[in-house]
């Protein structure tokens, strides 16, 4: 096998893909919560949280949602192809110290990032609940994987599968009956914000995995900065995990819209190119 070769590719739902990349050094070193940066063909440099690793086989698994030009380029790469650039593991590993009971809350593609967290907690004999939220039934993925490591609750926005509602609904029920050392949350910013607001009422420590706009992922550009407890932090070197009760979510929600127009335009242009 060649370095950075795609050895596995699976479509998990309409827009979410799983890929196994051969990179023994990264697979050997990566811990839950860390990310990689890929660049392939004319794509941008894109950070993706590591979904799983097989250190014996030297494979790093990434899960991504096709959302713009760069992820579209990646989604069109096939098994056997070598990615041009693949750097990692970046960011700090999630801190699981002294966590004996936890709830892992994920929304959409965030389930992929939440899985290694649940898996690691399970392996250290913690009691783990998992709440996975999806828009509807056809988008659900990783349910079986989670069931092997956590007591798993699925919610869908439209009620087409399992419990209808938002993750906060299920979380509130669990918070009313259980004691957690920590809640881990990964997903869209408004969802993480809602979870943080809820757990704050219950005074349960909550860790959010942040995924802001990045270029280098090593602290050089400062594009991934966010405000935590009134201080400027870089998600790549100080995070990506932060105390969810201290993150200024509103600022980050605004910052993540910086290139919305450009990206929509670039994506349309790319799709038109493919049609030709």
């Amino acid at each position: 096998m060649k370095l950075n070769q795609i050895v596995e590719k699976k479509q998990l739902n309409q827009v979410v893909y799983l890929m196994g990349i051969y990179n023994p050094a990264v697979a050997n070193k990566a811990k839950a919560g860390q990310f990689v940066i890929f660049k392939h063909k004319e794509s941008e440099r894109i950070p993706l949280t590591i979904a799983d690793c097989n250190s014996k086989m030297g494979i790093v698994y990434i899960v991504f949602q096709q959302a713009g030009v760069s992820t579209a380029i990646l989604s069109r790469a096939n098994v056997g192809e070598q990615l041009d650039h693949f750097a990692g593991p970046l960011g700090n590993a999630t801190n699981f110290e002294k966590v004996k009971s936890a709830c892992v809350v994920a929304g959409g593609v965030g389930a992929a990032i939440a899985y290694p967290i649940a898996k690691t907690l399970h392996s250290q004999n913690a009691k783990v609940d998992a709440i996975l939220g999806f828009r509807s039934k056809n988008l659900v993925f990783f349910e079986e994987k989670f069931q092997t490591v956590a007591d798993t609750h699925i919610v869908t926005d439209d009620g087409s599968y399992a419990q209808k509602g938002l993750v906060t609904y299920s979380l509130e029920q669990l918070l009313n009956t259980k004691q957690y050392d920590c809640v881990f949350v990964v997903g869209p910013l408004p969802m993480m914000k809602a979870v943080a607001n809820l757990t704050k009422e219950y005074s349960v420590k909550t860790i959010a995995s942040m995924n802001p706009i990045m270029i280098d992922g090593t602290g050089m550009c400062g594009g991934c900065r966010l405000t935590v407890d009134g201080k400027t932090k870089f998600a790549c070197v100080d995070g990506p995990d932060f105390d969810a009760h201290k993150v200024d979510f509103d600022q980050l929600i605004a910052r993540n819209k910086t290139y919305q127009q450009f990206e929509r335009h670039a994506y349309d242009k790319y799709c038109n190119l493919l049609k030709k």
């Binding site: 270029i215 050089m220 550009c221 900065r225 405000t227 910086t258």
Partner: peptide
């Protein structure tokens, strides 16, 4: 400084 449209020179030049 957290507003969209504030760059570090590093980020602007890297882009």
């Amino acid at each position: 400084e957290g507003l969209s449209g504030v760059y570090s020179a590093n980020e602007y030049l890297t882009r």
